[in-house]
Amino acid sequence: MDMHVTALSQNIARVVLAGRLDAAGAAAFDLPFSAVAGSNRHVLVDLSAVNFVSSIGIRTLVLGAKTIQRRGGKLLLLSPSSEVEQVLQTIGVTDLLPIVRDEAEAIAAFDG
């Protein structure tokens, strides 16, 4: 699981993930992602290169979203694959982890 963090703006961090967000991937991504979630107002997680998301990966994302929400921020998911989106919709976490299709939509959602 690869993870890169860039600043989309002063308040928004963009986290790009690639590979499988399974148990091993989540273990590698958990700590750095928690650090990003704890130090940025808004976070956009780019899932376009993630081909699988496991239960433990979803839990990490959900906990990150709760941390950010506590400080009045938002966590959005960018362009997940149809398989990943199906899993997220199945368990009904898209309220907690809203899905956007591009950066413009994300910025509008963060501002709103």
Binding site: V53, S54, S55, I56, R59, V62, E83, V87, V93
Partner: peptide
């Protein structure tokens, strides 16, 4: 089977919470 995998991962996250 794909549906079963999706349900398993989703329910797994719920059970972890």
């Amino acid at each position: 089977a794909n549906l079963a995998d999706a349900l398993t991962q989703g329910l797994g996250a719920v059970l972890m919470c």
